[in-house]
Design a protein around this nucleic acid. Structure first.
Lengths: 348, 348
DNA sequence: TTGTACGCGTTATCAA
DNA sequence: TTGATAACGCGTACAA
């Protein structure tokens, strides 16, 4: 195990000073062509690479981005990470990922840890608990420290920073309209509690679509599911199926379902099967979040794609651009990623 | 935006020397109790945190782990990452993730990049292309540079390093045996090309189970699928369903399917549906890799769980232990994570 | 054209 | 009990 090449070692071996080596490697004209060639050849031969830590210490930049997400075992977030990774690498940035597991405390701790790791900026999606508590002191604090934040998907609009979001209202409107267009009259909405802004917004889109078509909303067929954890992981989410079933019991002529995420949609599919309803003949289903479940379920789900990969790409490039600007003057932007209706077999 | 607190600033404010401050903050008895109290209080008040970069420069340790994975949008890898994150954070380590997209070149480049970021060690799962080419120079090189590697799942046994794997042979044997136990006589195997060692090993387990029960293997019902990319993402994987269908055409009395991953199993489910076969009454299906698809498919899939989270945890703690040892003497270990049969609705 | 010296923030050694 | 100094690796302003 050979020790690492450094400017110092090169200098000693070649009998010149460190700064000569440094300049030569930067192809500085101050240094004679002869020496430049010699030093560069030597460095190349021994595969010299400048020490990033030393550079970081000097430049006060680590070329590292901190990424805070609620959950990594989640198709949407995985896609976002992919997108972030992609443009980060293109620009010579590394990405450190920290997972909050939807916990406010872990979000705060992770951010502090990453700040101490001297990351240059944050990309983050807030935990459910943070959204619920509406506690944003840690966010404001990091911004005050001069560390820029780009929020995506789950954002807090009161915070002055860049944001990348999906037009949840529009996406839901389109989804609901699709159901109406294919003849649905009674559309069950499966959504989250209002404290999650995406749940709230998607509910709003649903209501707007109904309004546009002069359909009176019926609170009996709006189910707000309050789960703080991660439903995908829970074994005991039978409860949800039971709740959905009860609604069908009460309102048997439901002919459409709009679910704000894939899991809810799958549950609806299961209930339909239990009740002998054919999808899409008797019941149409549209889901938000185009993930792996939608593609492989039976029947495959018509969904609203959030373009997670693209969201990640945009978030990363916005952050990297801001970091490149040095002096903070550019206005904060809120970029809206267009959603897209992907038609599959769960609708007519 | 206030400038960061440093030893130097504290020293100046308090009118003492930098080294006094440093010692006081380390509660060094050399420094008078008075001064220690004063300095510590001051530091606490101004929320002083030592600069990790400076520490890294001195210690030649970054407390950062490099993670190289083929694909992040993949349930199994996500779980492994979760496990790694978990123990890494517990031990004060950060994790930098790089994705290879199954490409050898990206694997090489990413490793070089992370080496330049001065990560302390690697955790990695090899790309399909690397397995195919059997090119391992980049692995050997990093090891020679004194950077430890822990490989998981997709490993190369010729490389001297720690490894965390699943007993693919045993898992497959158990899966196949389960099918045999429930009465299957003709079991279709859906596997990958042999160049992927997990495909090879799982095939071996299948064959062993047949042998144990005096069943003669039939090459007509062994389908080796050669995909280098990521099948999950391909739209045109209809081909696979067609191929499976053809086998059923040829061998109509197939009554069981063992698939080495979830996607293949889902495809089998689809083909069964097309052919009017009831699962599990007419056809039983067992899959490897317990992911989100297995839980939510219809019927839900009996699978072999690889315990991805645990694999990640073990890989990380093996690496962190080795890093703590400093001088390399400990023997390399190969840890085998027990698989587990998770029975769901696709088997009787 | 080359080299010296300093600073980034920290710790450790040695001198006062 | 305290402080000055060197060192980690690099870049650069300035001196030679």
């Amino acid at each position: 195990m050979k020790p690492k090449m450094t400017l110092k070692r090169i200098a000693k071996e070649l009998g010149v000073s460190i700064s000569t080596v440094s300049k030569a490697l930067h192809d500085n004209k101050e240094i004679s062509q002869d020496n430049r060639d010699k030093i560069q050849a030597f460095a190349k031969f021994y595969n010299y690479r400048p020490n990033n830590i030393a550079l970081s210490l000097k430049n006060k930049k680590t070329k590292t981005l901190g990424l805070i997400i609620p959950d990594i075992v989640h198709n949407f977030f995985s896609k976002v990470i992919s997108g972030i990774e992609h443009v980060a690498n293109l620009n010579g940035y590394n990405v450190i990922i920290a997972v909050t597991n939807e916990s406010f405390d872990k979000e705060v701790i992770n951010m502090e840890l990453l700040v101490q790791s001297n990351i240059d900026g944050f990309i983050m999606s807030l935990s459910k608990e943070t959204l619920l508590k509406q506690d944003k002191h840690h966010l404001q604090e990091t911004i005050n420290q001069g560390i820029p934040i780009v929020m995506f998907d789950r954002v807090l609009h009161e915070i002055a920073c860049d944001k990348v979001i999906v037009d949840d209202v529009e996406g839901s409107r389109i989804a609901t309209q699709k159901l109406i267009d294919t003849g649905c009259k009674k559309i069950l909405l499966l959504t989250t509690g209002d404290f999650i802004n995406i749940g709230k917004l998607r509910t709003q889109g649903y209501l707007e679509a109904l309004g546009n078509n002069n359909i009176t909303p019926d609170s009996d067929i709006i189910l707000k599911i309050n789960d703080l954890g991660n439903l995908e992981k829970k074994q005991d989410n039978r409860d949800l199926e039971r709740d959905i079933n009860q609604i069908f019991e009460k309102v048997p002529d439901i002919d459409g379902v709009f679910a704000v995420n894939e899991i809810y949609a799958i549950k609806a599919l299961n209930v339909a099967r239990q009740r002998g309803l054919r999808v899409p003949e008797d019941l149409s289903v549209v889901s938000f979040s185009d993930g792996i479940l939608s593609q492989h379920s039976w029947p495959s789900l018509t969904t609203i794609s959030q373009h997670g990969f693209k969201m990640g790409e945009r978030a990363a490039s916005i952050l990297i651009n801001r970091l490149a600007l040095e002096d903070e003057e550019k206005e904060f932007v809120t970029e809206i990623i267009k959603t897209e209706l992907i038609e599959r077999d769960s609708t007519r």
